[in-house]
Amino acid sequence: MDLFDKLVELRKDGLAKIKEATDEKKLNEVRVELVGKKGELTKILHSMKEVAPDKRREVGQRVNELRDLFNEQLDGTKEEILKALAQKKLEEERIDVTLPGKRGHVGSKHPIYLILDDLEALFIGMGYQVVQGPEIETDHYVFEMMNLPKDHPARDMQETFYIDSENLLRSQTSGDQARVLEKHDFAKGPLKMVGPGKVYRRDDDDATHSHQFMQMEGLVVDKHVTMGDLKGTLEMIAKHVFGADRATRLRPSYFPFTEPSVEMDVSCFNCDGKGCPICKYTGWIEVLGAGMVHPNVLENAGVDSSVYGGFAFGVGLDRFAILKYGVDDIRDFYTNDVRFLGQFRKEDK
């Protein structure tokens, strides 16, 4: 058998052996046997002297071709073996992805703050400053400055927790209006503020009353602020909170600190205005009170009411939350039942 025949045979045997190797160890043995330093191909090269000189070049070429083929096949097979190995390991690592995860605790915002944060963002976007004042207020700021002198009948409308004859728990956030009006420098631009916070009234707690709740006051004062501006602003609040498809109406009302005073109703979201128990069969739900700042309020704060004027509004945040989320008992906001609080997690406004 000459070298050429040997090479043909080696090719056939070698490829078969590579194919047969099923693990890395066997494959390495085959590699040593075929292409190793003492392997078959090397042996053939060593026996080159038996070949006629004119054929040696050809034999060398054939040996190199065969070495490349073996290496290629060996590498390919090795890759397959490793792949299979990895696959096997992955199989062993298989888990049941349908088992539940291990849950910690999921935080949440209180629903009243959901409403408040959303409104604040709306007003900040329109250039309003968010201002917070004290909750323990003086009769002076909550009432006197707001055009509610002592013995004003409207003081009965909101029975107040007094600490002494002058200090009290604020029954409305409007005291913030007076404080801001006093300080504002109109030479530096218009006054636009919202003032959210807790307020307190001497009410016994029941489904619709709470001795503590939250309000947000709004105030815009400058040289040219109109009732049309108020109407546009109120409509924007109502549509923002209750939906763009809600109809709104303004009704004359009365607050000592605004003149004219209005209240705004939105069409009932339960019955769409047809009448139902929620809207007491009127088709309308009252959502807020507002008006043009009373000249006395401006003058009391040292603002010239013949030059400056503006509007103010007050939003009951608990009431907004009650209406928006369909809460039927205001006490739910203050008992902090985690089953109640948890349901608002998905809300972002």
């Binding site: 900040i124 250039g127 218009p190 815009v220 040219h224 602020v225 501006d229 109407k231 546009g232």
Partner: peptide
């Protein structure tokens, strides 16, 4: 219904 047409103010907390 209109929006107040006033000099620009900077809103925020």
């Amino acid at each position: 219904s209109t929006q107040p047409l006033l000099a620009e103010t900077h809103g925020g907390y």
